[in-house]
Design a protein around this nucleic acid. Structure first.
Length: 273
DNA sequence: ATGACGGAAGTTTTCCGA
């Protein structure tokens, strides 16, 4: 069994105690973090190490920033999207060893899993420069992933996508129609990732109605469940038979001074291939 | 109601997020 999770923490400086608390009660093999909002020299490697985790980070001042927290050490770490020039820290990828399961045979050496943690651009408003950047970034991600999935068939792409799949991911579809996170252009790019051979882990299972991963801080968004599902875990074809569960953990959103996002978790069972 | 809430920079107000 292996668990992977993604969480946009909206400042790791502020949220570190909550992340450590959550890892203590919800141990996972790999946790992808987004919106660190800190430079690499400030990253709390020692705190994660004391909790029993390895960590690799890719940060910048004030905005963005991503990390992978893991039980096994990260291998073949790559930062941002090869072939797409970007001055923002949005992607960190690594390979992790998987322990052979109880049914493994003597010649099973275990598998590795390639994990891509990503903080997709917000896009601000359709038609803006930031929106054009978002679409260009999405095309760059897709072009790179197409090759990456050939090299790494067992791949997980998880993070804050800042895109909803459809109206079921939106608390107010009429109010949000053609607005940021909900435009046809963004949804086209998200579905183009699916077409590469990826699956939305959340929708592989029955889920509570109106399941969201983000709620506006304003206007009692969480209490009224005024949210959107914009944090996703996409699983490659080769891993799909091993996905046993996926859920959104809303409990950290009930903390004092919470992130506006909740963690999303996926569980994989060992099945020899 | 081009607002609210929250974080960062940095000092008082602005940018940004979603």
């Amino acid at each position: 069994m292996m668990k992977l999770a993604t969480w946009n923490v909206n400042s790791l400086t502020v949220r570190l105690p909550q992340v450590l608390d959550w890892l203590g009660t919800h141990p996972v093999d790999v946790l992808a973090l987004q919106e660190l909002k800190m430079t690499d020299d400030k990253f709390p490697h020692a705190a994660f190490k004391a909790a029993g985790y390895h960590s690799v980070c890719f940060g910048q001042k004030t905005y963005n920033g991503v990390a992978l927290i893991s039980r096994a050490p990260a291998q073949q770490v790559e930062r941002n999207i090869p072939g797409f020039t970007d001055d923002m820290a949005r992607v960190i990828s690594a390979t992790f060893a998987r322990e052979p399961g109880p049914t493994a045979t003597a010649d099973d050496t275990g598998q590795t899993i390639r994990v891509v943690g990503a903080y997709f651009p917000n896009g601000q408003e359709p038609g803006s420069d930031k929106f054009e950047y978002k679409l260009a970034w999405l095309k760059g991600l897709r072009a790179w992933l197409r090759a990456e999935m050939v090299n790494h068939p067992h791949l997980v792409l998880m993070g804050d996508y800042n895109i909803t799949f459809d109206d079921a991911d939106v608390w107010d579809p009429e109010g949000m129609r053609d607005q940021i996170h909900c435009t046809d252009e963004e949804r086209y790019e998200l579905n183009a990732l699916i077409t590469l051979g990826l699956h939305d882990a959340h929708r592989l299972f029955a889920q509570p109605p109106k399941s969201y991963s983000w709620w506006d801080y304003r206007d009692f968004g969480f209490r009224r469940n005024h949210g959107m599902r914009i944090d996703h875990i996409l699983i490659s074809n080769a891993l799909k038979p091993q996905v046993s569960a996926c859920w959104i953990d809303k409990t950290p959103r009930k903390n004092e001074r919470p992130s506006d996002h909740a963690p999303v978790v996926v569980e994989l069972v060992w099945r020899p291939l």
